[in-house]
Design a binder for these strands. Structure first.
Length: 496
RNA sequence: GGUCCUUUGGCCGAGUGGCUAGGCAAAGCUCUGCAAAAGCUUCUACAGCGGUUCGAAUCCGCUAGGGACCUCCA
């Protein structure tokens, strides 16, 4: 089997993945800021890294997956707003800050569950790690790379850049950053324009505030990830993931902070997912074009022609490579909806097929199936190419359907190949891609009732009593259950 | 303005120097009491202009369009 290769944003090339500690993988992914509701764009990294998590686990690694909850509130550019996003909204909604944060955390968890993403191993909150953040800032000050001004602490980027590669991850040129002349309030506190806050002095109206060696304040934007990643994954860990838009300044600053504090670069492989766009433009709050996840699921947004099942969205995301932009569109979503249905139906049929020797093995076909199946691993190993895995699956869908219709014999492929196909389909669709049925779980009672109706209908059809047989099918259709006659007099049903 | 990315058939999207990805839509056919599915077939595209090459959607250059980051952002 080929080795896993991942595209490392830091080196800008695919590299063979080798964990620091054999058999184990430490992965940190930037989580949501729970000051508002998640939108479609937010679904992408969490689905993407869920598949990474699942695949690494599938390969046998013991993965510690850390994904934070940013509940301390990031600020707008220093001083532009006297209070951070969370505290502002909290006042508008007349809620306690933590109450608001809890509400959106719950909503986020609910949405993630809809997407069938696995829970991270650790989901630390920023507010729960103020002590660690303060500790880290103290280390950086001690090392001489941060300075205090009026109760705030800033990281000295210029000094850091003199001996380190600040800007390498995001392709930034340090001189450009230093020379940019943008007029912003609070700027005069910093020694340099490129410096960033580690700790901010809290204005009296700022609700979220903590005691620190520098007075009452709150942590800077980037320090939480550095502190929590270090605490749970160590000073150097394998994978750090997040959206591409976080490369600068967030991840760049994380590297700087952690490198000074821990004396080594924190991350081995940086993995960044691309954006979801709408009419070619990034979906985001500042563009006013975001569709929240609850709207996606309910269809309650003028842009949406209908509601989309979470699995359809997950499938939609997996049909493209994670480093490409993905353009939202009703037509595209509906294509995914139908495609997923077809894939899933074939998968259900495959599970029910039995191998019986009724014909000689067709070598050519057998080899084709073996190839398509074995490529699943190859594609995943090539920087998680879920789109290609799905393409291969669809090539097998036609064959599975032909077997179901008895147009070709199941034994036209060997027993081993058939078993391999059944096994790998399950492993890939369910365990690795994390897809599941879009219909409600079928209860035993429902199964029994449906079997009864099918028996009655078969009987009616046998007597050419089409009035009865059509009535059964039509009535079921009204309930959203479609009954289909299969070749050979069998019947199958699906819930719409 | 700076840095970087991108441009694939009606739509969404893979993609590597040579071998029609795949999905959806559309058309035809087959199967079928009728439906619905399903199967088969058709539609063979790579922004434009040059260049490199035996050969380029894939490499290089120019032109045009789109986008991201530089400020919170998945």
């Amino acid at each position: 089997m080929s080795e896993l290769k991942v595209y490392n944003s830091y080196s800008r090339q695919k590299e063979v993945f080798t964990p620091i500690t054999p058999g184990h993988v430490g992965m940190y992914v930037c989580g949501p800021t729970v000051s508002g509701e998640s939108h479609l764009g937010h679904a992408r990294p969490y689905v993407t890294f869920d598949v990474v998590f699942r695949y690494l686990s599938h390969l046998g690694y013991k993965v510690r997956y850390v994904r934070n909850i940013t509940d301390a509130g990031h600020f707008e550019e220093e001083g532009r707003e006297a209070e951070d996003k969370i505290s502002k909204k909290a006042m508008l909604e007349r809620l306690e800050p933590m109450e608001l944060v809890q509400k959106y955390t719950n909503l986020f968890h609910w949405a993630m569950e809809q997407f069938n993403t696995l829970r991270p191993s650790i989901e630390p909150t920023a507010t729960g790690h103020i002590v660690e953040q303060i500790g880290m800032i103290q280390e950086i000050i001690k090392a001489g790379y941060a300075y205090e001004v009026n109760g705030s602490v800033y990281f000295d980027v210029k000094k850091y850049a003199a001996s380190h590669d600040y800007g390498k991850l995001s392709g930034r040129v340090i001189d450009d950053l230093l020379e940019t002349t943008r007029d912003l309030d609070g700027q005069e506190e910093k020694r340099d324009r490129a410096d960033f806050a580690l700790w901010k002095n809290a204005a009296p109206e700022h609700i979220m505030r903590w005691q620190s060696p520098w007075g009452v304040g709150f942590p800077g934007w980037h320090i939480e990830c550095s502190a929590m990643a270090t605490k749970y994954l160590g000073s150097k860990f394998d994978i750090h993931g997040g959206g591409m838009d976080l490369m600068f300044p967030h991840h760049e600053s994380e590297i700087a902070q952690s490198t000074i504090c821990n004396h080594e670069a924190p991350v081995r492989y940086w993995i960044h997912n691309n954006m979801i766009t709408i009419n070619g433009k990034k979906m985001g709050k500042s563009y006013g074009n975001q569709i929240t996840l609850t709207q996606m699921f309910s269809g309650d947004n003028p842009i949406l022609e209908k509601a989309y099942h979470p699995m359809v969205i997950r499938f939609f995301i997996l049909q493209t490579h994670y480093r490409s932009t993905l353009d939202f569109g009703n037509e595209a979503l509906q294509a995914s909806e139908k495609g997923l249905r077809r894939l899933w139906d074939a998968y259900e049929h495959l599970k029910k097929l039995n191998w019986e020797e009724t014909s000689p093995v067709n070598d050519e076909q057998d080899k084709k199936v073996v190839r398509l199946i074995s490529e699943f691993d190859e594609f995943m190993n090539d920087d998680f190419s879920t789109a290609k895995v799905l393409a291969n699956m669809f090539e097998l869908v036609s064959m599975i359907n032909s077997m179901k219709d008895k147009a070709i014999a199941v034994s036209s492929i060997s027993k081993e190949t058939f078993d391999l196909m059944q096994k790998q389909f399950t492993v890939y669709i369910e365990d690795i891609l994390g897809l599941k049925s879009v219909t409600e779980a079928d209860s035993n009672k429902l199964q029994g009732i449906m079997q009864l109706l099918i028996d009655i209908r078969k009987d009616a059809k046998g007597k050419k009593d089409f009035v009865t047989s059509d009535m059964i099918r039509n009535q079921l259709a009204k309930l959203g259950i479609s009954l289909k006659d299969e070749k050979g007099g069998e019947m199958s049903w699906t819930i719409e």
